[in-house]
Design a protein around this nucleic acid. Structure first.
Length: 627
RNA sequence: CGGGGCGUGGCCCAGCGGCAGGGCGCCUGGUUUGGGACCAGGAGGUCGGCAGUUCGAAUCUGCCCGCCCCGACCA
């Protein structure tokens, strides 16, 4: 450790040098960080100061030493921004579909993200552990999840022919660990977490690191004796997640989510908004209500009550759609019922919903408790004796019927006549027909009212960068993970699980933070904080000054990537700087050296400024976000 | 799994029955140096694989493999 840095560095790290109340990144003290910065242990190559002490990261790098190179052209296979930019900037290397190597620059970012996650998990009471990726299939059969994952499970055999899997997640193993180590309510609660590689044989990997088949993931698992305790753990994790995203410089939406086939009551997704995202959340700008598209509910137009009219057939030649029907009869589509046919686990299901609404497949699947749900095809519809385009629940008895709550709101609807070119007016539920299940299965849409405050809802696309679940007792019951309560009774442990895809988070961060020139890294997850560029390094004075500045930054513990290439023109170098998108660019050039200044520019800013060479370090150290 | 697109030096692409090409990059020498330089010389490819058609196949046909996009799927 050589001296002058360490003291002030630690103070800085703890936030003491923040100014003006700005506190974007390190708002909560500095547990778990003590002394890891500003220490200059000699690295394995003996070059002092290039490695951080306890983390053993290389803190500085010369471009001429970097293995990877940027690409001049956009890779044609990459359409989404993060994928394109990560390939171009030399962050990732594709090995196969959905399988990537993280090259040194990306790996630095990933390690930073991991460390932020690690610190927040530890702060929330988590204990880190490592579990095997390779597991016997038998374990997955005990919970039925071998079948549930199906082809998404990477499977193989060991040399004795024993079926094995590459784990897509670790609930089974972690539950076994807890079962072996927890007997009493006194041992609970427990939160364990892991950051490691997981495998899912995704049917369609896409968008670079957004959806891959092998990926680094943080999963945490909570084990609690009762619901209240589970709630505490869940809230602690939710808060930890918020801290993580804030510290990464990423604004995320926390959305109510469907808890899935296994899940218990609560589930939330964390969504980073970007137009190329795979998921849609419905959100209320007025009150903050946010839910994913599968879960969200919206308030739709209420129809005034009317006296029930009698049922009457109308001829509707050629009319097969709701739009066509509304137009033909000159009525609003709100005054019609649509019929939709599904196949749920091989059984035809008849679904009725108001004509202006759409069926939410996930809600329907949950209502039916079906494991496989899809739209019925024409043959299946015909075989069930249903008339597509003119169907209604009236007179249907031998098929399972599901009605959306919207069919109870209003009177005198136009419905199918169950024979071609015929509809019925004056249809009223439940006078004219019944359903087997009546519940909310409507898809929420932007423009509908917020269920909390009634203001119009909006739809936002984004990438899911975290998901937390209350699991309940599914795994503990299947695997016999019980504890003894105060009365000496065996009880299944109540579980929760909490995941963040590390690589996906990086990809989503880039997806959200880039321009047409390249990446714009949020400082906390940037591979280096400063991109030092020497222009015209054939000039000895320039080289001397650039090297001096590099050394000074290195000595001050500032992470710097130094473009020391002598064989590239200014254009190439400056474009590479914009492409990689580190927070700060410093340019040393003949004219700057003559003037005794260094050009200073932030990636987020349009303009640069000239800083006296002697004040560069002080300028950087005055920036709260630069580490 | 359905639909579409694409596989040609390290990268981006042209060629589509008759000698395998261009740009970038790379190597050597020289000139250049603030937004993807210039000159001269040079290295580098079983044209994704297999089979077939043909005097002759990168080019036509069939099968297969791989990659990308849309959809399905995504506790």
């Amino acid at each position: 450790m050589r001296g002058k840095r360490s003291g002030r560095s630690q103070g800085r790290r703890c936030g003491h040098r923040r100014r003006g109340g700005e506190s974007h990144y390190f708002p909560q003290g500095c547990e778990g960080q003590g002394g890891s910065r500003g220490r200059h242990a000699d690295g394995p190559d003996g070059r002092g100061g290039e490695y951080s002490g306890s983390r053993w990261f290389r803190r500085v790098m010369k471009v001429t030493q970097l293995v990877t190179k940027s690409l001049r052209d956009d890779p044609p296979e990459a359409e989404t921004a993060s994928h394109r930019l990560m390939l171009r900037a030399g962050l990732i290397y594709q090995v196969a579909a959905g399988i990537y190597a993280s090259l040194p620059l990306a790996y630095k970012s990933l390690r930073k993200i991991e460390n932020i996650i690690r610190e927040e998990m530890d702060r929330a009471g988590g204990q880190e552990l490592l579990m095997p990726a390779l597991q016997p299939l038998e374990l997955w059969e005990q919970t039925g999840r071998g079948a549930a994952f199906g082809d998404n499970l990477f499977s193989l055999e060991d040399r004795r022919g024993r079926p094995m899997v590459l784990a897509p997640t670790h609930e089974e193993v972690v539950t076994g660990i807890v079962k072996a180590n927890v007997q009493s309510y006194r041992d609970l609660p427990v939160i364990l977490y892991q950051i490691q590689t997981k495998f899912r044989d995704e049917p369609r990997p896409r968008a670079g690191l957004v959806r891959v088949r092998e990926f680094a993931m943080k999963d945490a698992y909570s084990f609690n004796a009762d619901e209240e305790s589970l709630d505490d753990s869940y809230q602690a994790m939710a808060q930890a997640y918020k801290n993580i995203y804030r510290r990464c410089g990423l604004p995320v939406l926390m959305a109510e989510a469907d808890s899935g086939a296994i899940g218990g009551k609560d589930s939330h997704e964390f969504i980073l908004a970007t137009p190329t995202g795979e998921d849609t959340v419905i959100t209320c700008p007025a009150c903050g209500y946010t839910a994913n598209a599968e879960k969200a509910s919206g308030v739709y137009h209420e129809l005034p009550a009317e006296d029930e009219e009698s049922l009457e057939a109308v001829s509707t030649p050629g009319v097969k759609t709701i739009d066509g029907l509304a137009q033909y009869l000159n009525i609003s589509d709100e005054k019609t019922f649509k019929a939709v046919f599904y196949m749920a686990d091989g059984e035809v299901v008849f679904v009725t919903i108001r004509g202006d609404l759409e069926v939410n497949d996930i809600k329907l699947k949950n209502a039916l408790r079906a494991s496989d749900l899809r739209l019925a095809d024409d043959q299946e519809v015909a075989k069930a004796g249903l008339v597509a385009g003119s169907a209604s629940a009236i007179g249907i008895h031998d098929i399972k019927r599901v009605g959306d709550l919207s069919i109870t709101r209003g009177n005198n609807f136009v419905v199918g006549g169950n024979k071609p070119d015929t509809h019925l007016r004056g249809a009223n539920y439940p006078r004219d027909f019944q359903v087997d299940i009546l519940t909310d299965i409507a898809l929420a849409r932007p423009g509908q009212g917020c269920p909390n405050c009634g203001q119009p809802l909006e739809a936002v696309r984004g990438v899911e960068v975290g998901h937390i679940f209350k699991l309940g007792t599914f795994f503990s019951e299947a695997l016999g993970a019980n504890y003894l309560d105060r009365e000496g009774q065996h009880q299944p442990i109540i579980m929760g699980c909490y995941g963040i895809g590390v690589g996906r988070l990086l990809a989503a961060a880039i997806e959200q933070n880039h321009d047409d020139k390249g990446i714009m890294f949020p400082a906390p997850i940037a591979p280096y904080q400063v991109h030092l560029v020497g222009l015209n390094l054939a000039d000895e004075q320039v080289t001397e000054e650039a090297e001096r500045l590099y050394q000074e930054l290195k000595d001050q513990g500032i992470e710097v990537l130094y473009d020391d290439r002598t064989d590239q023109t200014a254009g190439v170098k400056l474009n590479d700087v914009d492409l990689l998108g580190l927070p700060v660019r410093l340019v040393v050039s003949p004219r700057n050296v003559k003037a005794g200044v260094v050009e200073f520019k932030q990636r987020l800013d349009e303009t640069s400024s000239l800083v006296p060479a002697g004040e560069v370090v002080a300028t950087l150290q005055a920036m709260p976000e630069i580490t």
